[in-house]
Computed example of a mutant assay.
Amino acid sequence: MNAAVVTAVARDEGHNFSKPSQDSIRLLAGLGVEGDAHLGVTVKHRSRVAQDPTQPNLRQVHLIHSELHDELRASGHRVAPGEMGENVTTRGVDLLGLPVGTLLRLGDAAVVEVTGLRNPCAQIDNFQSGLLKRVLGRNEAGDLVRLAGIMGVVRESGEVRPGDGIRIELPAEPHRPLDRV
Rank of each mutant, 00 (worst) to 15 (best):
I25V: 14
R26P: 00
R26D: 06
L27V: 07
L27P: 04
L27S: 04
L28H: 06
L28Y: 03
A29H: 07
A29V: 05
A29W: 13
G30K: 11
G30F: 09
L31P: 00
G32C: 05
G32D: 04
E34G: 00
G35M: 11
D36M: 08
D36W: 14
A37M: 03
A37Y: 11
H38V: 03
L39A: 09
G40C: 13
V41C: 06
T42R: 15
T42K: 10
T42E: 10
T42M: 05
V43K: 06
H45L: 10
H45G: 01
H45M: 03
H45E: 09
H45Q: 15
R46H: 12
R46L: 13
R46M: 02
R48T: 00
V49F: 02
A50R: 15
Q51G: 00
Q51E: 06
P53R: 13
P53K: 15
T54W: 02
T54D: 10
Q55F: 11
L58E: 02
V61C: 07
V61H: 09
H62W: 14
L63P: 01
L63W: 03
I64N: 11
H65M: 00
H65A: 14
S66P: 03
S66W: 10
S66E: 15
E67D: 14
L68S: 01
L68E: 02
L68H: 08
H69S: 04
D70V: 10
E71P: 01
L72W: 06
A74C: 01
A74K: 12
S75N: 11
H77R: 07
H77K: 14
H77C: 08
H77S: 13
H77A: 08
R78F: 01
A80G: 02
P81L: 04
P81Q: 06
G82H: 01
G82A: 00
E83W: 09
E83F: 00
M84D: 03
M84Y: 03
G85R: 06
E86N: 02
E86D: 10
N87S: 09
T89K: 05
T89G: 10
R91A: 12
V93T: 11
D94A: 13
L96A: 08
L96D: 01
G97P: 14
G97V: 09
L98H: 08
L98R: 11
P99Q: 11
V100L: 08
V100R: 15
G101V: 04
T102W: 03
L103H: 14
L104H: 08
D108H: 14
D108S: 14
D108K: 14
A109P: 09
A110D: 10
A110I: 12
A110S: 07
V111T: 11
V111F: 04
V111L: 06
V112T: 12
V112D: 02
V112G: 05
E113N: 05
V114E: 02
T115W: 09
T115N: 04
G116N: 06
R118M: 06
R118C: 15
N119C: 13
N119T: 06
P120D: 10
P120Y: 09
A122N: 09
A122T: 10
A122I: 10
A122L: 13
Q123W: 12
Q123M: 11
N126G: 07
N126P: 00
N126R: 15
